[in-house]
């Protein structure tokens, strides 16, 4: 059967049409449109002209680029912390547990993430607020005299973001570590390595694809998160997505909001690209 028979081509067209419609109407055109709007300025009612003023505004108004840098650095910190916390757990599941227990503990890791992010964040609010569980327990233990407010600061935001991101780190890490044959680790020890050198020379290089895809996904999700900083950070959380929301929904300044959106998209894509380049991974492999 030749690929060029008209019937098969019709089949291809039928399969291609929904895909292209979806891609054009919901992904490509909206973003192109947003890029165009971000480069325009309202001259008078209903009239717009090309202008870079929205971007100029971003660089001259210190609040905007400070928020931008702050969001980026905190996202990197969150990604790093998530990796540090998740790695030993993934290693434990993949290499210390066997058979049924392994599957069970792994499934146990996943359960919290079937629950809505809103519910998880709400849980942290109940734990951390002034009248919350942590503060009350500390008073009960006699460690402090009065109630302490743990909520509405950067540490609370980071705790919540690390919690929310955990799944996206544990799953790829455990999968790659699980695929590492135990004999390689044994060989490392036989050749005179100690725990540290085996980890550095054998385990981590093998786990690199998992580390990279975990880090990329966690970074992106953290950068684009709105809910956790808004609820745990309170009014002064200064997360960049909140700036976007304010411009679009509160101030109705779509030109400025679009410029912010494009900037965030650039930052996100740049970091993904950088992560892939540094680790020599392909985008399609990391994502699927």
């Amino acid at each position: 059967m030749s690929l060029r028979t008209p019937k098969l081509r019709l089949g291809l067209l039928l399969l291609l049409t929904p895909m292209l419609l979806w891609l054009l109407l919901l992904i490509i055109l909206p973003h192109v449109n947003m890029a165009i709007i971000s480069l325009s300025e309202r001259v008078s009612a209903g009239e717009y002209a090309f202008s870079l003023s929205n971007y100029a505004e971003f660089f001259t108004e210190s609040l905007y680029w400070n928020t931008f840098l702050r969001t980026a650095t905190m996202s990197i910190l969150v990604t790093f912390l998530t990796l540090i916390i998740a790695f030993p757990v993934s290693y434990y599941i993949a290499k210390m547990l066997r058979g049924r227990t392994k599957g069970l503990v792994f499934a146990l890791c996943l359960i919290p993430f079937w629950v809505s992010e809103l519910v998880r964040t709400y849980g942290w609010m109940i734990l951390l607020r002034e009248t919350g569980v942590v503060s009350s327990s500390l008073q009960w233990l006699g460690l402090t005299d009065g109630p302490i407010e743990f909520l509405y600061n950067d540490a609370a935001i980071i705790v919540g973001l690390v919690y929310t991101s955990m799944l996206f780190m544990v799953v790829p890490l455990t999968t790659t570590l699980d695929s590492l044959d135990d004999s390689y680790i044994e060989a490392g020890y036989d050749l005179g390595g100690n725990g540290f050198t085996v980890m550095r020379e054998v385990v981590i290089p093998h786990a690199m694809p998992g580390i990279v895809s975990g880090c990329i996904v966690v970074f992106m999700l953290t950068l684009g998160n709105y809910l956790t900083p808004a609820l745990l950070g309170g009014k002064d959380s200064l997360w960049f997505t909140e700036q976007i929301f304010t411009q679009f929904i509160t101030r109705f300044n779509w030109e400025q909001g679009s410029a912010f959106g494009i900037l965030l998209l650039f930052l996100s894509s740049f970091i993904v690209w950088l992560g892939l380049k540094l680790s020599r991974q392909s985008f399609t492999r990391v994502m699927s």
């Binding site: 992106m220 684009g224 965030l264 993904v272």
Partner: peptide, 12 residues
């Protein structure tokens, strides 16, 4: 997968 949800929302 790499577009933050907020941006996907506003662009649409």
């Amino acid at each position: 997968l790499v577009i933050p949800g907020v941006i996907l929302g506003v662009s649409i």
